[in-house]
Amino acid sequence: MNEPQAARATHIGRTLVIASNTFTQLVRMKVFYFLAVFGVIAIASNFFDMPQHTGPEAIGANVLRSIKSWSLGAMTLFSVVLAVVATALLLPKDVEDRTLYTILAKPVPRLDYLAGKLLGVLALIFVSLLAMDILMTAVLHIRTQIVLDQQMTLAAAMGYTEEARESLRAETLAQGPNWSLQAAVLAVFLRAAVIAAVAMLVSTFSTSTLFTAVISFLIYFIGHFQADLRSAWLAGGADGEGWIARGVSLLVSLILPDFQLFNVVDAVIEGQLVSIAVMAKLIGVGLFYVIFYTLCSWLIFAEKEF
């Protein structure tokens, strides 16, 4: 192995060790207890099948949407809260436990330390989302089969032709577990990864965990308006905005990440399909944000005195 390869392997190795320790540290905080809450939500959402108008198309039309809506909503909330809170806790906790001094006293580059910490948080979010996704997919799969059986029985009784029944079957299956649903879960993960990277950047200059969490949540919410503000800036004041409003629009557009881009959850719940090309672009944007904010964090953290 030549010298640069050896150095690279060491960098990756160190980062992975820190990531693994961070993951263990977070697991010991009993964060996985929320999975029990998620389980209750996924199962409870099955009971919101309200009586509606007649016809096979109406049977279970609401309950499948309800399962996806509740589950993906819970995934979004859990992942964002985990991303912000876990990341905000990391640096202050390492300082408090004096682990940080032990690590930085060794020949560990600060970039490796930060990347390891972030990877640990992302691993936790990934495992959590994976567990929730498996549960949601299982519940949705079982319920879709039940709904399909009911619909086909009624459609046959009402004299639907084979063609009409196939059309109905395809429509119901589109509401069940499919690729787009998994793409939505991946988009939820990407959004959580970006906000975790932002929280890490904030925590490098923040003086308290609370400050980091509050600022990160604010960035998260304002980030959902970023596309609108960008459009307002690019419209060039066509809607009559003053120069102050346009200036603020530009500033927010330049500084904050666009979280609305990752918001494909609503469309998927409404039955839209996510193409692989769009998903690849979202992954690209997500990776860019994570790498960029990690590098910014390192620039600030590199010579920080403790």
């Binding site: 494909v264 996510v274 960029f292 910014c296």
Partner: peptide, 28 residues
């Protein structure tokens, strides 16, 4: 400076992606 420069660079890219996703009905 890096945040502003990359912000300016990603603005047209994100604007195009937003338009593409809105056209595909993926963004409300």
């Amino acid at each position: 400076l890096a945040v502003i420069v990359t912000g300016a660079a990603r603005m047209p890219v994100e604007h195009r992606l937003t338009a593409e996703m809105r056209a595909a009905g993926l963004m409300p």
